[in-house]
């Protein structure tokens, strides 16, 4: 396959604006297969907007991205999911009225084959699918040490555990690119270490390509293979963590930023 020679993701000249306000302008960068690429930058730099373009929630004004060799723009979220682009949201976007395991099984939707009639009548294909989905979801829950919470309604769980459920839901369908939007926000130091270790493990064991938005620079520089710095929708720097740490533009943008992100 020629795809092996290509990057996992090639973002090309993407621009996005909301009612005339530029959120992203002419952004290009590449993400190699199997790497963790961190997107950093002050609030409002366009990081989350970019993830929203990658999984089809927003349509870019111009530009495209090439995912596994196929040029894409303005795709439907479902299409992104089908192509294997998984996502965790900034604030947990779980299905709050459902149990942990049901949340995770929803992540298998794109693999569902049994029709409505087969499910209603409890025909063999629906029963086999239900058993398989449950087994796969349990397996994924085990990765996160969540089996004992399987039947708990998610809204009853603390934030840190919910985050893991969301990771499990994004992971269960076997994505080839995982987009993580501030997975460590709102956590204490211990939980941050735990989630960071999980992310590193997923990347290492499953060879999963990950794009990570994170404000905690200490963790970003340790975790990422590659860092892209955004400011006001433009790319400020792009390179390995060491180079980013010493980049004067980055230091200026961060120290100069009114939000004091470096302290986070």
């Amino acid at each position: 396959m020629t795809a092996a020679a290509l990057s996992a993701l090639d973002v090309k000249n993407i621009s996005l604006s909301f009612k005339g306000v530029k959120a992203i302008s002419e952004l290009s960068f590449r993400v190699e297969k199997g790497e963790i690429c961190a997107l950093i930058g002050p609030n409002g730099a366009g990081k989350s907007s970019l993830l929203n373009i990658l999984n089809g929630v927003y349509a870019p004004d111009s530009g495209e991205f090439i995912f596994e060799g196929e040029p894409l723009r303005d795709i439907h979220p479902l299409e992104a999911a089908r192509r294997g682009i998984g996502r965790c949201f900034q604030n947990n976007a779980l299905f709050s009225g459902m149990s942990v395991i049901d949340n995770v099984i929803v992540g298998l939707s794109r693999h569902a084959r049994a029709s409505l009639i087969e499910e209603a009548l409890g025909l063999p294909r629906a029963r086999v699918q239900a058993r398989e989905f449950r087994a796969r979801a349990l397996e994924t829950l085990k990765l996160f040490d969540l089996e004992r919470h399987a039947e708990v309604i998610v809204r009853a769980l603390p934030y840190g555990v919910q985050k893991k459920v969301e990771l499990a839901r994004a992971l269960v369908g076997g994505p080839r690119l995982l987009l993580l939007d501030e997975p460590l926000a709102g956590m204490n130091a211990e939980e941050k270490q735990e989630i960071a270790a999980i992310i590193a493990r997923l990347n290492r064991d499953l060879k999963l390509t990950i794009i990570l938005i994170e404000h905690d620079l200490g963790i970003v520089l340790k975790l990422a293979d590659h860092v892209v710095v955004l400011d006001y929708g433009k790319k400020l720097a792009d390179g390995p963590p060491d180079a980013i740490r010493d980049n004067p533009d980055v230091i200026a943008a961060y120290i100069g930023a009114p939000h004091g992100e470096l302290a986070a």
């Binding site: 999984n55 089809g56 929630v57 439907h76 979220p77 479902l78 992104a80 999911a81 089908r82 996502r87 949201f89 976007a93 779980l94 299905f95 709050s96 009225g97 459902m98 049901d102 099984i105 929803v106 992540g107 298998l108 939707s109 794109r110 569902a112 049994a114 409505l116 499910e119 209603a120 629906a126 699918q129 239900a130 989905f133 839901r169 994004a170 369908g173």
Partner: peptide, 21 residues
Amino acid sequence: GQTGRNWMAVRDMDTAAAVVG
């Protein structure tokens, strides 16, 4: 079944449901 889970996912948060597949 999956049908009901999809319904509840749409009910609880439909943007996330679409993104999840």
